[in-house]
Every structure is written in C-alpha cells, then in structure tokens.
C-alpha cells in the first residue's frame, strides 16, 4: 500500500528528527526524557495520580518524564534491563536477582521506615486459620511470581516448615497485583493470600470496606521496602537528578500531595543491607525448591 509506505517513511523521518534534537538537547542540558517503570508494588495506579507525579518530576528534572506500566514485574524488569527505562519501582527480590545490572536509587519510607511485611490474609469469615499451614488443600492467591511479599515469602514459610509448596495447596493462582489478592480473598475466590503489608494497610485506610472483608492472620518479619532501581549503565547525573527529585518530594507541595496518594512518607537513599534477609530467603527457597 503506497499510503502506508508513505506514512512509515514520514514517521521514520519524524523519529529521526526528534532523536537528533533530543541528542542535541542532551548535550546542551540533559533534557532527555526520563522513563520510569511502575509495577503493582505501588498502591495507586490511577491516571490522575500518575499525571500529578509526572508534573512534579518534569518540573524538578526540567525534562519530560514518562511512566511505563506493565502487568507483571517481569515485564518491567525486562524493559529496564533492556535499557528502555531509566528507572523502575521493583520488588526487592527482583533487585537482588539482578544486582549486577541494577543499582539502588531510592527506597520509599512507609510509616517512617523503609520496611514492610508480607501479610497472610484469609476471608474475614474464616476465624479459625492461625497460620499458613492451616490452609492445606485450600485455594491460595499470590500476587506475582517475582514478588517477595506476594509469593516468595509464603514459599519460604512452607519450606521452612518442611513442606513442599507445590502440592500443599489445592490450587494457587496469581492476581498480578497485591490489591487483587485482597479482592480475591475478600470475594472468597481464594481461601488465603499473600499481600504486601503496605498495600493492605493503605487499603485499610482508603478502602476499609474491602480490607475489612479479610483478616490478617500473620505478618512476616520486616523486609526492605520495594525500591526504585536504575540500570547500572545510567549516567550518574541522571540518576542523581532523579534521586534528588524523589527525595525532595516530601518538602514540596505537589510532591507531598503525590506522597499522600501513595500513602508514603517520602523517599530515602537506602542501602543494600536492607535486603539482606530477602537474599537469605532466596537462598533458602532455591535450596528448598
């Protein structure tokens, strides 16, 4: 089709011109677009909230910002590793899995600490369950296979108790978001689920009707909060700019507003030590699995 062909040629030209101008800008004052990947570790994924956050970052970075959202952790990680993203908000587990290629950017502060738990939840109608092993031959909801709180920690618990996780439950499934784990358990699709404490606690504040239909049975030890990470290859200046912009959020009106929506106190620098116990659990699971 000639028209299609013409369109493609034109599109190619426009892209070329844009990249040339971007390169030129980058050379002048680094106004290259920041691409940040988001996963369901965060509670809110509404367009309005993302717009506010982008406005804030664009203003502080003096560069365009684009948020990229994918359904699974894995997809976002792949994009980051492929260099398509400058930074991404990932689970600590994934950060550890790709420690060689990734670098810690910021760690969010939830209730003043860069820490969170994995919650074991059951429907509120279930008043008997006291621990994960009570859910034998039940249906269990995980959030994402690459989520520490939503998959790895329950596996770790079972393995620690000497149980082979594959055949423990009657059925397991992934909801691909922590919030949907709560939904699945509240609706009774699953008789148990593993959820990020940050998500559950935030729901308890913002959507108590949903969280009230579930009961937290047990809480894991504290783990490092899912961090924002960058590719190791990212220019130091861009990483510093981004880190600074995020850290500055709590002292800015618009930034505070975004943090309020995120139900976070702010971002801190963080260090790898936060994730040591996750690294331990990876080892245990890998040995056990």
């Amino acid at each position: 089709m000639p028209t299609e062909y013409v369109k493609r040629v034109l599109a190619a030209c426009v892209i070329t011109v844009l990249s040339i101008s971007n390169t030129a800008n980058g050379l002048a004052g680094d106004t290259k677009e920041y691409r940040i990947g988001l996963t369901s570790v965060i509670f809110a994924d509404g367009t309005a909230f993302v717009n506010d956050w982008r406005t804030y970052l664009t203003h502080h970075l003096q560069a365009p910002v684009k948020f990229v959202q994918r359904q699974t952790y894995r997809e976002v990680t792949d994009l980051l590793l492929a260099g398509d993203l400058d930074a991404a908000w990932l689970c600590g587990y994934l950060y550890l899995q790709h420690r060689d290629e990734l670098e810690l950017l910021n760690v969010p502060l939830f209730k003043g600490k860069p820490l969170y738990h994995s919650y074991l939840i059951v429907p509120s109608s279930d008043t008997k369950t006291r621990k994960l092993t009570d859910l034998k031959k039940k249906v269990f909801a995980y959030s994402d296979p690459d989520s520490h709180s939503g998959y790895r920690y329950p596996q770790l618990s079972l393995i620690s108790a000497g149980i082979e996780p594959k055949h423990f439950f009657a059925k397991t499934f992934f909801t691909w978001s922590h919030r949907d784990v709560v939904n699945a358990v509240a609706d009774g699709v699953a008789q148990g689920g593993a959820v990020d404490s940050y998500v559950w606690e935030t729901l308890a504040e913002k959507d108590p009707q949903l969280s009230r239909r579930t009961r937290v049975v047990s809480k894991s030890p504290e783990y490092g909060f899912p961090p924002l990470v960058t590719q190791r290859g990212l220019a130091q200046r861009r990483a510093d700019n981004l880190r600074e912009a995020l850290m500055h959020m709590s002292s800015d009106d618009m930034g505070s507003k975004v943090l309020q929506i995120l139900n976070l106190d702010g971002f801190t620098v963080g260090n790898d030590d936060l994730y040591n116990n996750i690294a331990d659990s990876i080892r245990i699971v890998e040995q056990g699995g």
Binding site: P123, K171, D187, G188, V189, A190
Partner: peptide, 12 residues
C-alpha cells in the same frame, strides 16, 4: 474452576 459466588461455590 471459578464462579461468581466464590464464597459459596469454592474453587476446585
């Protein structure tokens, strides 16, 4: 496999 009344008609 699934139902719209999962709490009554449990999966599996």
């Amino acid at each position: 496999y699934v139902s719209n009344r999962p709490s009554e008609l449990a999966v599996t």
